[in-house]
Amino acid sequence: MKKIILFLLPILIILAIGGSWFALHSQPTPKATVNQTKLKPKPSYQPLTKAELNHNSKLTDCSIVYYAIKHSKIQRWQEVSNFDLGWQLDQYPIDNGIKVLVWPDMAIKKDAKLVQPNWFYLSATGQVIYHSFIVHSFRDDMTETTDLETIIQTLNTEHAAMKVRQMLPNMLIVKHKNPASN
């Protein structure tokens, strides 16, 4: 009988260890349901809209400047492409719209404003005309025309709305009065 116990005891120990290991690792994992776990919503793209631009003129200016930097065929608009330095915009109301001078560097001082900057005209109907003075030339400004609808559509197609919104803190707007209203 002793021989049988000595023979069966190691087998029983091995079966007990193996059985407990199998019991631990073969338990079914609980399946999560939508109600049990809260899924974090993915940050979704927030496109630019005409309504948003109508309510936020600074965002409108950011969109127009961004479009000029990225899409204008007027080379001189690259002078204002430093997103870290930002921009200073001098706005002058004119007939049926606004003329906006675009200076590189939001902290630019008056004595640094020596050469005529790039500028754009925004009409009350949403037409945008980009202008650029040709340095060391007696020719007319180079111009390029588009509209807010095209700008919005292009920026949304490129998913650039977030980049445009990130421009807001780096843009200083200086509003001037219409000289005729004095």
Rank of each mutant, 00 (worst) to 15 (best):
D141M: 05
T29A: 14
T150K: 15
Q116S: 10
Y45I: 11
S44R: 13
P93Y: 00
I98C: 00
Q166I: 00
T33F: 10
I98Q: 10
T33S: 14
L101E: 09
K110Q: 13
K42I: 14
S72P: 11
P179A: 04
L53A: 06
S132C: 05
I5P: 09
I134G: 04
Q127L: 09
I13G: 07
K99L: 10
Y130N: 04
A180M: 10
T37H: 08
D84K: 14
K2R: 10
I152R: 06
H131C: 02
F7Y: 14
S26W: 08
K50H: 07
E52Q: 15
D61I: 01
V164H: 08
T145F: 02
T60S: 12
S72N: 13
A160V: 05
W77C: 01
H159K: 15
P117S: 07
M162K: 09
V34Q: 11
S20Y: 10
W87T: 01
I98S: 08
N182V: 07
C62T: 04
I17W: 05
D140E: 12
M1R: 11
D95T: 13
L6A: 13
T157E: 12
I98L: 11
V174C: 04
R139M: 06
Q153T: 14
Q36S: 15
M142C: 00
T146G: 09
I134A: 07
I152E: 04
K40Y: 13
L15C: 12
K163T: 05
D147F: 02
K70Y: 07
W77R: 03
P41W: 01
T157L: 08
K38F: 12
K31P: 00
F22V: 06
Q116D: 10
H55S: 11
D90S: 14
